[in-house]
Design a binder for these strands. Structure first.
Length: 776
DNA sequence: GTGTAATGCTATTGG
DNA sequence: AGCATTACAC
């Protein structure tokens, strides 16, 4: 075991060693919070605590996996794999599978994703004759989601006049009814949605004292990361489980709370002190990640928020470079500027692609960035957006898998009963649905027992349905005896999906086919136990050797149901060495040497929907704080004057957050300075537009800002004076100081110099970019 | 019941 | 601009 305590500062050390009783760690950005959590768990294990008795809840499954690996290295043992570690959703999904029959659910319950939930809501609206423009499925779902996150059942919802009055006022009186039907339909289908995983866990612990007791005893030590982003349902689960031993440690930073929109509640941090009066509080305030410039700017931004805990984040790190602010004319130019700047930094600093992240407010902004990066051949990876498992063809095959595992899964049944086309049309499905609803059973029950129901369906159609049901049943029978790949491969062929996709020779068709192949490859890896998808939480009862157990399809599905893009590990070094593109939300907990925050415009960042309330606006500001504090070395901020939205060009105002930046830390590009002034001129023009025709004022350059070359425009920099640069000559570089040219490669002006800098070492520099000066 | 053309909606943020 | 649902012809 390594001497891990020596790697911690004093407050980190205290937080690690104080293992007994309730503890809250307020951890500023970049203060080594993950390190503290990791070492704390390792410390517990070193003291002899059985990993089976430790529950650690993280924000992503990837974070859990990485933490497990680090712990394994510290304690030098494979014991760490017995830790219960993962997201709230994945850990409690596992517990719900163990305890499902207590809730009347099958062990193999399906987890409905957001699309399933919305589709079910659409069906309910149709059946109830409600207008889906009034009751927008996404709005209905978010209403249900909020209720569940607050532990409000559909009965309680309908019984609470404050809630129903609110719905009536909004002219949506049927929301409670929809919630009730939705709940019943999910139950009948043996399905839980994302919120149910937390909600039902609460019901389980509330109504079954024996179960509560069991897990209270089991989890003697509980740790929760990113506590500021937990909602009420999560708060109650943690409180219940920790009630016996009270060895509860939560880590959070109110300044980084960015999930209020999905029910996260900063109050959970404040409530914590009330729940545990003998609470010990530790503050981690020293930032090890970022330059002093970045820390100062971030602090200044967050200081504009009224709601916050007192905290003083500081750093001993170097001042570092100024933060660059660049204005561009269009969103495409913004993309080009960012890509060019990355190219430039890569060359000058010998930085890897993986050192860069481009962060944006909305997924839609990724397109311009992608196109620009592709033009310069810079490899990138997009996180979020449409993930692999959300693609149509993948969802189709997955729907077969889900239906095989749980025949009552209504959404899967409806998705594939007529795909590939087998002559079972909408009218037939509607008839079956009506009968199923009237008899309060699942669609599958009706299909299996035609003769018991009074169905007006022709024999021809009946035969087709019977054929389908027989096929699904034959797959289900294979489930326990075949591994995931064998069954999955069989299903892909026997269902006709592969044949259907193979007949489509268009580019998209080929790609669909390839995606199916990729899924099957994933199944193969899983079946051969190459830890393709590592199980994050062990089953307490499960002492069998993992490798001897048959890797069946239902186990595969359990593992992938809650995986997100962020959880996927790049397999090769080439895959890892890419520029990261993601929303700021997705960047939580990550760090990069160079961070680009793009689209700093009013109505985009801050989002238009946040402008009505101070709390919403403050969340946007925290979002910017999170974005800034991801960076280690340098932040570049960009905004565009115009941007395409829904195919239309719209003009954009600079974000109000730009005005909150402290000018002493900011370096504006010349174009940014100019356009900043121009904005005001344009505003005047716009104001008079209908009366006068004032010609636009000439561009202005403010004297007190350093004028620098337009970013990412190599053409603007003329390296002519370096034409005769040769090996042996002395040069100076802005950052590396003075050095001697070792070798020269290539033909001017596309040539490269290898320079040995004093005290820095050897660097390869492109003359086009490096801005070298020749010394005598 | 099936396939294609036209329409219309969307884009906060995510497990 | 791009996707999804709907409308309409077969």
């Amino acid at each position: 075991m390594s001497d891990y305590l020596s790697e911690l500062n004093e407050s980190q050390c205290q937080a690690v060693e104080c293992t007994e009783g309730p503890v809250i760690i307020i951890a500023g950005a970049g203060s080594g919070k993950t390190r503290v959590l990791t070492y704390r768990i390792a410390h517990l294990m070193k003291k002899g605590v059985d990993p089976f008795n430790i529950l650690a809840l993280t924000f992503t499954n990837k974070a859990a996996r990485e933490m497990k690996e680090r712990i394994a290295r510290i304690v030098v043992s494979t014991e760490s794999r017995n830790l219960w570690m993962g997201t709230f959703h994945s850990v409690f999904a596992k517990i719900l599978r163990i305890e499902s029959e207590k809730l009347g659910y099958p062990t193999n319950f399906t987890i409905y994703d957001t699309d399933d939930s919305k589709s079910l809501i659409r069906d309910i609206l149709k059946e109830q004759g409600l207008d889906d423009k009034v009751y927008k499925p996404s709005l209905v779902l978010s209403r249900i989601s909020t209720a569940k996150s607050s532990l409000i059942s559909s009965q309680a919802y309908n019984a609470d006049s404050r809630i129903t009055d609110e719905d009536n006022m909004a002219a949506k009186p049927k929301l409670g009814t929809i919630y009730e039907i939705y709940t019943k339909r999910c139950f009948k289908a043996g399905a839980m949605d994302f919120d149910d995983l937390l909600y039902k866990t609460n019901i389980l612990l509330r109504d079954h004292p024996d179960v509560l007791h069991k897990y209270q005893h089991k989890f003697k030590y509980i740790l929760v990361d990113e506590y500021q982003d937990t909602n009420f349902a999560q708060y109650v689960i943690v409180k219940q489980l920790a009630a016996l031993y009270q060895n509860i440690c939560v880590v959070g930073d109110d300044a980084q709370s960015i999930y209020a929109f999905r029910g996260a509640n900063i109050q959970n941090i404040l409530n914590f002190e009330k729940d545990y009066p003998d609470l010990k509080t530790f503050k981690l305030e020293q930032n090890y990640r970022s330059t002093r410039t970045i820390v100062n700017v971030a602090n200044a931004i967050i200081a504009n928020n009224k709601d916050q805990l007192k905290k003083n984040v500081w750093t001993q790190n170097d001042e570092g470079e100024k933060i660059k602010l660049i204005k561009t004319l269009t969103d495409n130019e913004e993309g080009n500027t960012v890509a060019n700047t990355i190219f430039e930094i890569k060359m000058n600093q010998q930085a890897k692609n993986s050192a860069f992240a481009i962060l944006y407010r909305t997924n839609a902004q990724s397109r311009a960035m992608e196109e620009a990066l592709r033009k310069l051949n810079i490899p990138y990876r997009i996180y979020g957006g449409l993930s692999f498992y959300q693609r149509k063809e993948i969802k189709d095959l997955i729907a077969y898998f889900r239906l095989i595992i749980n025949n009552h899964d209504e959404e899967s049944l409806k998705r594939i009963i007529n795909y590939p086309a087998r002559g079972i049309g909408n009218t037939t499905i509607e008839k079956i649905t009506v009968i199923a609803n009237d008899n309060d059973v699942s669609l599958w029950t009706v299909i299996e027992n035609f003769n018991d129901f009074n169905l007006d369906i022709h024999t021809g159609t009946r035969n087709k349905i019977n054929e389908f049901a027989t096929m699904i049943r034959s797959f289900s029978v294979m489930l326990p005896t075949h591994n995931a790949y064998d069954l999955g491969n069989h299903v892909a062929h026997a269902s006709g999906i592969l044949k259907d996709l193979y007949s489509d020779k268009t580019a998209e068709g080929v790609s669909h086919h390839e995606n199916i192949q990729e899924l099957l490859n994933g199944l193969k890896e899983f079946s051969e136990n190459k830890n393709a998808v590592a199980s994050l939480t062990p089953l307490a009862e499960d002492t069998t050797n993992e490798s001897t157990k048959l890797k069946t399809l239902d186990l595969f599905m359990q593992d992938i149901a809650l995986l997100t893009d962020a959880d996927k590990e790049a397999e090769t070094e080439e895959d890892r060495n890419r520029v990261s593109l993601m929303t700021i939300h997705a960047a939580k907990g990550l760090e990069f040497p160079y961070v680009f925050i793009v689209g700093l415009e009013e109505n985009l960042f801050p989002s238009q929907l946040s402008l009505n309330s101070r709390t919403d606006l403050e969340e946007e500001r925290r979002l910017l704080y999170v974005a800034l504090t991801r960076a280690e070395k340098k932040v570049t901020l960009t905004y565009a004057a115009t941007r395409y939205r829904w195919g239309n060009l719209i003009s954009c105002e600079p974000s109000r957050f730009i005005d909150e930046l402290d000018e002493q830390y900011i370096e504006m590009s010349a174009s940014a300075v100019r356009v900043r002034e121009e904005d005001r001129v344009i505003d005047v023009n716009r104001f008079h537009k209908n009366k006068l025709n004032i010609p636009p004022a000439p561009p202005l350059v403010r004297k007190n800002f350093v004028k620098i070359g337009q970013a990412g425009r190599p053409a603007d920099y003329n390296p002519e004076h370096l034409r005769d640069l040769q090996a042996g000559m002395s040069v100076s570089h802005e950052r590396f100081g003075t050095g001697k040219v070792v070798t020269m490669e290539g033909v001017f002006p596309n040539n490269k110099a290898t320079v040995l800098f004093e005290g820095v070492g050897q660097k390869q520099l492109l003359l086009k970019f490096a801005r070298l000066k020749i010394l005598n």
